[in-house]
Computed example of a mutant assay.
Amino acid sequence: MSDIRLPDYNQALTELTAASLSVTPAELQGLITGMLSGGIPTDNDNWKTILFDYTNDGMGWPVNASKIADTIFTFSMKELSGTSMELNMLLPSDDDLLNYADAVSEWVNHFISGLGLAGSSLSKLSTETKEALVDLEEISKLGIDEDDDLSEQAILLEQVIEHVKVCVLTIHADLAVKPTATTPKTLH
């Protein structure tokens, strides 16, 4: 399982488009990460039912597209449950800054949707989690101004992406399903 990687963005986009699904790889990973961070159970495939309802009117996905979702789910679950405090976002190449920025916004929007789909109670959030959620809501509205210095905006966008990651990890730490600790048996 350690060799599971995020799929190539363009290949995933081709498969999702060929399956007539109106979701990009960035949106898909944002949605799945939001569901995981919101506490969706990971011990069954109910997440797929929610995904199919949200993205395809309850209809299942073709095999190749479904494999992409499975890979993203497994990768994201492993990454979020690890201790590395690292989050990799499935985004297109940053060669086209406007497309890249749009994908970041889509990722964040779908992350927020995923939190809602997980059905987590947002009423008892820690102060840090509330602030992270407010930050993500603001970030989801950001865009690149083509008239401004694009190299400067690219640097700012990378800083925003790092902040998104911190916000997501903060929310995940507060809301996600915690692994059940097994109590060691003591022999007397």
Rank of each mutant, 00 (worst) to 15 (best):
D3E: 13
R5I: 08
P7Q: 09
Q11S: 13
Q11D: 14
T17K: 15
A18V: 04
A19N: 06
A19F: 07
L21T: 01
V23I: 15
A26Q: 10
L28Q: 07
T33C: 14
T33F: 00
M35W: 01
L36V: 04
P41V: 12
D43C: 00
D45V: 08
W47I: 02
I50N: 01
I50G: 00
F52E: 13
F52K: 10
F52A: 12
D53R: 09
T55Y: 09
D57L: 07
A65C: 10
A65W: 10
A65K: 10
S66N: 14
K67T: 06
D70F: 03
T71L: 10
T74Y: 10
M85N: 14
D94E: 15
L98K: 14
S105M: 06
W107H: 08
F111R: 06
L115M: 04
A118Q: 02
K130F: 03
E137L: 09
S140R: 14
S140Y: 01
S140H: 06
D149R: 07
L156K: 13
L157Y: 06
E158W: 00
E158H: 09
V164S: 07
K165Y: 01
K165A: 04
V166L: 14
L169Q: 07
H172A: 10
A173L: 07
A173M: 09
A181V: 15
H188K: 12
